[in-house]
């Protein structure tokens, strides 16, 4: 019997067992929105931005605050301070344009080929990957990543340092808010990520170590788009 027939036979046996079972009491569709409406709201006295920063820092993300006009300069600082020689970035993105104006071509790695062709390079010779984000979550200090052909998912995964650009006005209070506002359920991308801090493990004697398989460090450029703050 070939695999397909096996699958079919298994499928029909499984479904006949499931459908043969008594349905039991119907269960109401859970109302997640009601839960979030009714639960305790975040404490006053702390802005959403502050909450995001506190939580993200707790998870060992390094936050660089900047105004809308100055993030390229702050990014340049990070590149210099961390002595990043080769940086992977997506072509035709705001970050790509900025970086190409800032760094000599040989220090930039344009992630525009198929992963198979650039695997060795990406795994072994890149110091950092820079990506945009579609927002953040204040409650947990998380970033929302929506990889695209221009910014493949491994860009934020394989290099030892991940630098992410986050606009303050795109920080949501909760994951649920983000999900609802973006209407993800109607248009899921191949890969959607919630990233909180750098990769880590505590598998050896419960000791926390960063950089298990993914980035060892995460730097967030937190960009404020308000004119007055940009002036600060």
């Amino acid at each position: 019997m070939n695999l397909q027939d096996h699958d079919k036979r298994a499928r029909s046996a499984i479904f006949s067992r499931l459908r043969g079972a008594s349905a039991g009491k119907p269960v109401e569709t859970p109302d997640v929105a009601a839960y979030f409406r009714e639960r305790a709201q975040p404490a006053a006295g702390e802005s959403r931005r502050e909450r995001f920063m506190r939580n993200a820092s707790n998870w060992r993300a390094e936050i660089v605050e900047c105004g809308e006009a100055e993030w390229p300069a702050r990014l340049a600082d990070v590149i210099a301070r961390k002595n990043l020689q080769r940086i992977a970035v997506g072509r035709n993105t705001s970050i790509g344009w900025t970086l190409s104006a800032m760094l000599p071509a040989e220090r930039l790695f344009w992630y525009e080929q198929d992963l198979a062709e650039v695997k060795a390079e990406l795994f072994n010779h890149i110091d950092a990957g820079i990506t945009t984000t579609i927002g953040g979550v204040a409650e947990t200090g998380s970033l929302l990543l929506w990889p695209t052909p221009a910014e493949p998912r491994t860009l934020s995964l394989i290099p030892p340092l991940h630098i992410a650009l986050l606009f303050e006005d795109q920080i949501h209070e909760t994951l649920f808010d983000a999900m609802r506002e973006h209407q993800w359920a109607q248009r899921m991308p191949t890969n959607l990520l919630l990233v909180t801090g750098p990769s880590k493990t505590a598998d050896i004697q419960r000791m926390l170590v960063y950089g298990a398989h993914g980035p060892k460090e995460l730097v967030i450029l937190l960009v404020s788009r308000k004119a007055q703050e940009a002036a600060l």
């Binding site: 939580n55 998870w59 992630y111 525009e112 080929q113 198929d114 992963l115 947990t140 200090g141 998380s142 990889p147 695209t148 052909p149 493949p152 998912r153 491994t154 994951l175 899921m188 991308p189 191949t190 890969n191 959607l192 990520l193 919630l194 990233v195 909180t196 801090g197 750098p198 990769s199 880590k200 993914g214």
Partner: peptide
């Protein structure tokens, strides 16, 4: 932990034009 490092939501294989996955 309040949250893990990654919540990875995968919806289908690589789509047209994508570089990885």
């Amino acid at each position: 932990q309040a949250v893990t490092t990654y919540l990875n939501v995968i919806t289908g294989p690589r789509r047209e034009g994508e570089r990885d996955g």
